[in-house]
Amino acid sequence: MSSLKNKRQRAILITVLAVVLLAGVVLLGFILDEEKIATHLDNRNSPPSLEHLFGTDWLGRDMFTRTMMGLSLSMGVGLAGALGSTMIAAFLGMIAATMGRAADAIVSWLIDLFLSVPHLVTLILISFSLGGGAKGIIVGIALTHWPSLSRVIRAEMMQIRSAEYVQVSRRMGRPGWWIAAKHIFPHILPQLLVGFLLMFPHAILHEAAVTFLGMGLSPHQPAIGIILSESMKYLSSGLWWLAFFPGLSLLFAVRLFDVIGGNLRLFTDPSKTHEE
């Protein structure tokens, strides 16, 4: 296409497409008829067709509808978890950078603490502690995904603090909040946004994994993890579509978030200006 001269313009187009697709999934999750996932005993276990794109399950529920509802539910849970994690990362990163060496050491110890137990085990533990359900997963995701982003924020803050214009502002007697709002926040914001977006896919995957293990969302909710865990019982009877399409859709959704996050990072990273 002649109008798409360079990589960046292509990246923009791909990002917009990805956003539209994901927004479409969320929209579908809301507008699809609940009736489609009611029990239809006359139409059980039918393979994918035009009418039922992803087939139907042993209760005659439309798998496409279940998958889309599951995806938008996963995104909601992932959104809440990733938001919480981003806030923790921003808070701890700023503390580490501004409150002196002791605070820095404590934050670094906390990071080590959260990295020393495998994420999935921590998620199971927190989920157990909160008695399962969406709350357990959201808290678990929020508590496990912040370490790398908080390091990025800390490094960025350190750099800005020592930058000349901040020093000048300080000597001009500007108050701390003024410097934070005027100089520091605008620099941190893109990092936070990109960090948040790159965290999102992990959050969704972890939600699905914990739910799959039976420790997450309740079996009555149309979550991808539930769908896949139920499908295991029917694998040997050849109902492959019960696992294949929902998992593939999850893969697509995660990949799209990754693409969006990666492209935004491309635009905010000055060292990438030399690529064609």
């Binding site: 001269k5 360079n6 960046r8 313009q9 923009i12 990438k272 200006t273 030399h274 690529e275 064609e276």
Partner: peptide
């Protein structure tokens, strides 16, 4: 010579 992005999408 090199092609380089300045700001945004201009090379």
């Amino acid at each position: 010579s090199f092609k380089r992005y300045t700001r945004g999408f201009k090379q």
